[in-house]
């Protein structure tokens, strides 16, 4: 395993770059980070109609989010890869296709997290802000969202670790992220395939496990803070 690392570390890290587009673990990281950065605002935007008081809007938003969540990510990837070009006439390289899919898919999940986070906040917060003369948007922006976001943090962290794992599906459409790069290497080293897979698993473990721990820690701290907040002063 060490030997494979010594010989192929650069290829595993950045793929065939600069002769081919950037690939390998670097592309996985870029996809995951830019995926989350873009999925956050998308999730927030999708949460707006989900909390609308206008029934048809809310129902439509629920339907869209349900649709996105009930179809396998792999199928979404294939939709975007094969049908987007047919519909809008522009075809994207696999990595961009993957990014678009990840952003929409995770946006739907994040919107649910956002709604849950806002609903979990005591109504008194909104009422107090409104009675102090804040407008609806101001209340949301300055009172509700900052507090809700803090409650959502554990869920958002675990969403990021899901996102990192989801980038592996790029291999299905030939995006040369870590999965594809390692698979190609395994093809070239027939006797050592198992070791390459072990390295691949280790790479994902190294990326996701720390996030798992951070998420768990945040969750524990959050539940302690919530307990303190709800316990009556004695």
């Amino acid at each position: 395993m060490i030997e494979i690392l010594q010989n192929y570390w650069l290829q595993l890290l950045i793929g065939g770059f600069p002769h081919t587009p950037l690939g390998g673990l670097a592309l996985t990281l870029i996809l995951a980070v830019s995926g989350l950065v873009l999925a956050m605002p998308v999730g927030l935007l999708m949460a707006v109609p989900l909390r609308s008081r206008f029934r048809p809007v809310k129902a439509l938003a629920e339907l869209v989010v349900f649709y996105i969540r009930s179809v396998p990510l792999l199928l979404h990837v294939l939709w975007v890869y094969f049908l987007m070009p047919a519909i809008i006439g522009v075809s994207f390289p696999p990595a961009i296709t993957m990014l678009i899919t990840l952003v929409l898919f995770n946006g739907a999940y994040i919107s649910k997290i956002v709604v849950a986070g806002i609903d979990a906040l005591p109504r008194g917060q909104t009422e107090a802000a409104l009675s102090l003369g804040f407008g609806r948007v101001q209340t949301m922006r300055h009172i509700v969202l900052p507090q809700a976001l803090r409650n959502m943090l554990p869920s958002l962290v675990s969403q990021l670790s899901l996102l990192i794992k989801e980038t592996a599906l790029g291999a299905a459409i030939g995006a040369t992220e870590a999965m594809q790069t390692f698979l190609d290497l395994a093809d070239n080293l027939p006797g050592q395939a198992i070791q390459v897979y072990a390295l691949l698993a280790l790479a994902y473990f190294a990326l996701c496990y720390p996030l798992l721990l951070v998420g768990r820690r945040l969750e524990r701290r959050g539940s302690r803070a919530a307990k303190i907040a709800t316990e009556p002063a004695s």
Partner: peptide, 23 residues
């Protein structure tokens, strides 16, 4: 459990199909 959850399902599948039978 954490290790299993930290690795994408696709990697699990590839391992059990291409890797494990060799062992």
């Amino acid at each position: 459990v954490d290790a299993i959850r930290s690795v994408p399902l696709l990697v699990h599948v590839i391992f059990w199909y291409f890797g494990a039978p060799e062992l």
